[in-house]
């Protein structure tokens, strides 16, 4: 599938995103704002950073759902990912983490997520768990055990200040105005995510495994009669989604530099937004990444508005993505969910 194909088939969606951006601009002009004061290179850079954890989670969740399993536990995986990364960073470094420890912590967190995701996948696929309830349960488990880990380590639900990821500054290129700051003097995690989004898109559409994932979600029997194990494909996709969400949580922590376990924890609905992002992107990894960027931008917008001297109730602005999803689902018809999502599949062998 080429990019033009995608744009052709998703005209409405793309038009929607453009319309939202245009509305923001128009609103800004009506309210007599200095748009350039708000949309700065720094804002875009921060938006991209805010988008990375969401995009990672979205790409994972998308794979699971494409394969026929609705993993709504990604919020829980993110919380685990963030908490594990924080505690690992502390434990590995013995209390004074440096840059290397950050990367080790991200890696360790991904590995721990792998273990959890495998267990979760077994429950969903082998034991045919109710996907909705099991996913919600995972969120609660995360909300409980995430902060619990922090309490065990720091005696508090929040961690002290740890280390965050340094920007990667590419010499020369970073001096290019605007573009340099956005792409060549930013967190390497942003670049990693961008590369990953493209790779995930290519993988899904142009490799045999991508075909299998799509077939497993649309017509598992067709895949089964082609001699490919639907179960194995789904295991792979669900485990991948759990690892990606865990990674998303770890990345979130690596950017923030400390763990917050109060309220809905520092993840605070980003996993849900991730689900929303891939629905918005119509199950296309690139579309999901763009949607994640829009949500990241919305998240950063209020800070931007505040610095420009405009106070907006951020509580309400934060609800935009949720309302957006309802509008998308309603006005632009249904996002086409793969037909076999939620049904467990038993081969008749």
């Amino acid at each position: 599938m080429s990019v033009t194909d995608y744009t052709d088939r998703n005209e409405l969606r793309i038009a929607g995103v453009v319309a939202i951006l245009a509305a923001v601009v128009v609103a800004a002009m009506v309210m007599d704002l200095q748009v350039l004061e708000i949309i700065t290179a720094g804002f875009i850079e921060r938006s991209l950073q805010a988008a990375t954890p969401i995009a990672l989670t979205a790409i994972g969740g998308l794979y699971a759902e494409k394969s026929g399993v609705f993993n709504i536990g990604v919020e829980g995986f993110m919380i685990f990912g963030a908490a594990t990364a924080a505690t690992m960073m502390w434990v590995i470094s013995g209390g004074s983490p440096g840059q290397g420890d950050v990367w080790l912590a991200i890696l360790a967190s991904a590995l721990v997520s792998l273990v959890f995701a495998t267990i979760f996948a077994v429950l969903l696929i082998r034991y045919e768990a109710d996907q909705i309830v099991a996913g919600l349960a995972l969120w609660f488990i995360g909300l409980g055990f995430g902060p619990f880990m922090a309490i065990l380590v720091w005696d508090s639900r929040n961690s002290p200040s740890l280390e965050s990821v340094n920007d990667l500054t590419v010499p020369v290129l970073s001096d290019v105005p605007v573009v340099g700051q956005i792409f060549f003097d930013t967190s390497p995690l942003v670049l990693f995510t961008a590369v990953l989004a493209v790779a995930a898109w290519k993988f899904l559409n142009d490799t045999r495994y991508g075909y299998w994932i799509q077939a497993a979600g649309e017509n598992p029997e067709a895949l089964d009669t082609a001699g490919i194990s639907v179960t194995r494909v789904r295991y792979a996709a669900v485990i991948f989604s759990g690892v990606m969400a865990g990674l998303g949580g770890a990345v979130l922590l690596a950017q923030a530099g400390s763990f917050t376990g109060t309220g809905d924890t520092m993840v605070s609905g980003r996993g849900w937004i991730g689900i929303v992002a891939y629905l918005f992107g119509n199950y296309n990894p690139l579309g999901a990444a763009v949607a994640a960027l829009v949500f990241g931008g919305l998240d950063m917008l209020q800070i931007q508005l505040q610095t420009a001297g405009i106070s907006v109730p951020n509580r309400l602005v934060n609800l935009f993505p949720y309302a957006g999803v309802i509008v998308v689902l309603t006005v632009w018809g249904t996002t086409r969910t793969p037909s076999a999502v939620g049904e467990s599949y038993e081969s008749e062998e």
Partner: peptide, 13 residues
């Protein structure tokens, strides 16, 4: 809270 989450998880299976 976590244990209640686990109960819910097991009930779903």
């Amino acid at each position: 809270d976590g244990v209640i989450g686990l109960v819910i998880l097991f009930v779903s299976v």
